[in-house]
Design a protein around this nucleic acid. Structure first.
Lengths: 140, 140
DNA sequence: CAGGTATATGACCTAATAGGTATATACTTG
DNA sequence: CAAGTATATACCTATTAGGTCATATACCTG
């Protein structure tokens, strides 16, 4: 696992991080709250630890894990160049989250139009700055 | 590939996104700028497209790709709960990025102290806010 | 329509990874 | 020291994802 991005690609690891976001937890805490096997939790914690996402503190036999923010800040930093796109799409996010939450089942078909069937662009100028089409058209 | 997180786990895909962040590009643009094979670029673009990270516009035989921000906003949203940790570590990020930039080679050994050898915690309160230790051990 | 260009896709191979079970290690208490 | 608890690790397996090569598809130009 090279990058921080690869680390958080794993859903269970994200769940662990989210859990730790609220407060530190021992391994067995995580095990029970997330319904995962103990070895699995330990393995994920190891990955997270080696990637700097968490650190452990010893309390008797327990290892109490907590967040270390640096790698997450790194992700945040990577997102920076894209934030210029946010403003135009502040509400589009809601629709997006809404949509992906409902779907999530269709495997691999009919979710995207094949590229060669894309609608012809208005063939005006290469004004790549307008992202307005897709979102335009009020939902209402 | 389930989530948006999985999509951006792939370095080439992140490179493509970063490239598109500045301006839209055709497939062959990407191919040449990132020194990737054409099939590889197309496949990654497909993944990105199906995940909603990019969309394509047709210009003659070219497919001109551009960013769609929604999934990135989703990532940004996921990071929100962790931002409470930022403030205490604003400068720690620099050190972290600095460090990980230099290393990046050691595969899997000696990068983290084994957990059972962790320093005894001062056993005071569970003040999980201090992340100050551990970072010592210079590479040199 | 023929030839050329740009992109997508399919087949195949390989490497990386997550999960499970069993077991080792470390620490605590009597 | 013995027994018990909490956590880490080794080994194995199935799955997945990415790369390349070859080829199909769509579009342009003359």
């Amino acid at each position: 696992m090279e990058s921080s991005f690869g680390i958080i690609a794993e859903p269970n690891r994200r769940a662990i991080l989210s859990l730790l976001a609220s407060s530190e937890q021992s391994v067995s805490d995580i095990e029970h709250r997330l319904r995962m096997s103990q070895p699995s939790v330990s393995k994920h914690l190891r990955v997270l630890r080696e990637a700097g996402f968490v650190e452990a503190r010893i309390d008797a036999q327990r290892r109490v894990y907590r967040i270390r923010p640096e790698p997450l800040m790194e992700l945040d930093a990577w997102l920076a160049p894209f934030r210029r796109y946010w403003s135009a799409h502040l509400d589009a996010l809601e629709r997006h989250l809404d949509r992906t939450a409902k779907k999530a089942s269709p495997k691999k078909a009919k979710k995207e139009r094949p590229v060669h069937l894309l609608p012809r662009a208005p063939s005006n100028g290469p004004t790549h700055r307008n992202c307005s089409n897709s979102t335009g058209a009020g939902t209402t």
